[in-house]
Each structure stands twice: as structure tokens, then as C-alpha cells.
Computed example of a mutant assay.
Amino acid sequence: MDKKKMLEEMLKNYLVNIAILKNIDIDIEELNLSDAPDHKKLDRLNQVKQQKQLEVQKIDNLLSFLNDRDRKIIEMKYFKRMKYEDMSVELDLSSGYIGCLKYKIIKKLVDDTQI
């Protein structure tokens, strides 16, 4: 998978990963409260938790490099899953221009960082 597609998948999965992290925390807490915790399951959950935390941190770090408009475009497209037409109304920009901006933002993130 090329870097651009990999970044877009990470962005699409960002909110899902946050939800997974919350559920893992609940699962770990439940296991720790049980009379005989399954240590293999705890280890596996902690390993998945660490992987998901790293993915979330990478996206947080990348978003911190963006200006407000670019960050909003990424959040609207990947986190809110908005269509370009809906984004254009909110941003007061043409949907075609937003598509071009999104492409440039993704390219810049891939070119300027180690994904």
C-alpha cells in the first residue's frame, strides 16, 4: 500500500481507534476485577492497546502541523465523513477546490513526514 493510501486509511480509522481504546480499557478493567484474570488475554489487550495508541498519536501529531483550515478539511472529510458538497457549504468554498485542497494536504503530510 502506498503512503498516501496508508495515511488516508489511518485518518478514516482514527475515531474507530479511539473507540477501540476505550473498549479495551473497559475489557482490561473487567479482567482485572475478575477472580482469576486471564493473563494471556490481558497481554494481548495491552499489545493491541499500545498499537492503537501509536496510530492515534501519529494522527494527532500530523494534525498539529496543519493550519486551522486544513485541519478542518481533514476532520470534516475523514472524521465526520462529509461529502465535498456539504463541506463546501460550511467552508464557503467550491467542492472542487476542497477536493484539490484535500489532495494537497494529504500529499504534504506524506511528503513532510515519515508514515
Rank of each mutant, 00 (worst) to 15 (best):
K107Q: 15
L93H: 05
F65C: 07
D68T: 07
K40G: 12
L42T: 08
D112N: 11
K22R: 09
M82E: 04
L101H: 09
N32T: 07
E8I: 15
H39C: 10
V89H: 00
I105C: 08
N23E: 08
Q47I: 15
M82F: 06
K80M: 15
L93V: 02
D2C: 01
D92P: 03
V110L: 02
L62S: 01
Y14H: 13
K12H: 14
D92Y: 10
H39Y: 11
M87S: 06
I73K: 00
D43A: 15
S34V: 14
I106P: 06
L66V: 05
K104S: 08
S94G: 12
I105D: 09
P37M: 08
E55I: 05
K104V: 04
I106H: 03
V89I: 13
G99P: 00
D86L: 10
A19P: 01
A36F: 12
N23V: 02
Q50W: 05
M87I: 13
D92F: 11
G99H: 03
L109F: 05
V56D: 01
L101E: 13
I28Y: 07
L11V: 06
E8D: 01
S95I: 00
I105G: 11
E55C: 09
Q47N: 05
D60V: 09
N61C: 09
Y78P: 03
D38H: 05
K102H: 10
K41C: 11
M10C: 07
M82C: 05
L91V: 08
L109K: 03
R44D: 12
K72T: 06
K107A: 13
K4C: 04
D35E: 09
D86G: 11
L7M: 02
I28P: 11
